[in-house]
Nucleic acid binder design. Structure first.
Lengths: 183, 183
DNA sequence: TGGTTCATGTAACAAGTTACATGATTAG
DNA sequence: CTAATCATGTAACTTGTTACATGAACCA
C-alpha cells in the first residue's frame, strides 16, 4: 500500500457524524477539514463507490425538485468498526512537512543573500494572515463552551494549528531581525 | 501541472553545491534533506534522466575499481538559472500539513474519550524523541560558527524544525494536563 | 433569463511508494 | 568468503491534481 489511504477514513469519520452526499463531503474539504487535508470531488466520488462495494457505507437516492437526484451516504456497522480501528491504532509515522519555502531556504548559503529579506517578509505576511484567519475560526466555531465539549478533537487541533502559526510568525520575525543590516 | 515538481529543484540545488551521483542524491534524502523532504532512488534516477535531456544537468562516467560505473552529475549554466528562478519566485502556497494524528483527533468528539490519553501520550513520546534528535543534529552539523555562515539556510530551517517540535511537545503536554481526571 | 450554486461523474496526467532486478566493491 | 554497502535501473501501483463533461435548481 502506498500510504494507507487516509481519505477513506476521513470520509468514514464525516459520515459517522451524519449522512452526507458526495457534494457535502466535497464542501467539508473546502471548509473545516480543509484546514488540514484536501481532496477534490474527482477523488471523493470514486472513493465513495469503493467504500460502498466494500460494505462500509451505503446510500439512498433522494430527489430534490423535479428530478435532481442526490445520493445520501451513511456509514454501516462495518464502516464504524474500521473507523474505530483506524483511530485506535497507533500513529507512529511523523509526516515530514513538505514546505516549499523551507526547501528554498535550504539552498540559501549566506545570510547576506539579497533574496533573504523579501523571502522572509513574504512568508511573514502569509503566515500572519493565516494566523488571524485561524484565530477568527476558533472564535466563530467555538463560541459557546458547549460546542467545545461536543467537538473536543476539533477544538484541540484548531488550537494546535493556531499555536503552530504563532510560532512560525515568531520564527520569521526573529530570523528577519537577525539578518545583517544592509548598508 | 500537479504541483510544480519540486524534486527537480531539490536535485538541482544539491548539484549546485557539488557534483553527485544518483546514489549520493539518494543518501542526501535519507540524511540532511530527509528532515523535510523524501524521495526514493526509483524517483531520482528517472528525474536525473529528464533533467539531462532538458539540458539542466550533465554527467560523466567514472569507474571505481575494475568496472563499476558511476554517473557523476553536475549542473549546467541553464540548470543554475532555473534554480535561481525557482528560489527567487514567490512561495504563496502554504502547504497544509497532512498529519495523520491530527486527523484522528478531529474525529474524537468528547474529552472523556478513553482513547485520548494514550493517543496523546504516544505522540508525546514520538515528538520528544524527534525533538532530541533535532537538537543533536543542530549540535553536530553546526559545531563551529563558520559552518553556520556557510550554510545559513540550513541552519535556519534546522532551528525552525527544532522550535516546531518544541511547540508540538508543549501542546501535547498541555492537552494531556487539561484532560478530565479519570476516577 | 441568466448567473451561481447544487450535484455527479470520467479522463488524463503527475507525483510518490513499493517491489522487482542486477551486479560490483569493500571491510571484516 | 561473506555481509554490508555502493550503484543503477524498471515495473506496478496508489494517490492526488487538473481538466473535461453534463445537467438541475435557485435566486435576482
Amino acid at each position: 500500500m502506498a500510504q494507507k489511504n487516509k481519505l477513506q477514513f476521513i470520509i468514514l469519520g464525516l459520515l459517522n457524524q451524519q449522512p452526507l452526499t458526495g457534494y457535502d463531503l466535497t464542501k467539508a474539504f473546502e471548509n473545516e477539514i480543509g484546514e488540514f487535508w484536501q481532496a477534490q470531488h474527482s477523488q471523493i466520488y470514486p472513493q465513495l463507490k469503493r467504500l460502498e462495494t466494500q460494505g462500509y457505507i451505503a446510500h439512498e437516492v433522494t430527489v430534490s425538485g423535479a428530478k435532481l437526484e442526490k445520493k445520501l451516504y451513511h456509514i454501516t456497522t462495518e464502516g464504524s468498526a474500521i473507523l474505530r480501528d483506524w483511530i485506535s491504532t497507533g500513529t507512529p509515522d511523523l509526516t515530514a512537512t513538505k514546505d516549499e519555502f523551507i526547501l528554498k531556504l535550504y539552498f540559501i548559503r549566506s545570510n547576506h543573500d539579497p533574496r533573504l529579506p523579501e523571502m522572509l517578509q513574504e512568508q511573514l505576511q502569509l503566515h500572519t494572515t493565516k494566523y488571524h484567519h485561524l484565530q477568527q475560526r476558533l472564535k466563530t466555531v467555538f463560541t459557546d463552551p458547549a460546542s467545545k465539549q461536543a467537538h473536543y478533537g476539533h477544538y484541540l487541533i484548531l488550537q494546535h494549528a493556531l499555536g503552530r502559526e504563532e510560532y512560525y510568525v515568531d520564527w520569521l520575525k526573529q530570523s528577519l531581525a537577525a539578518l545583517p543590516t544592509a548598508r
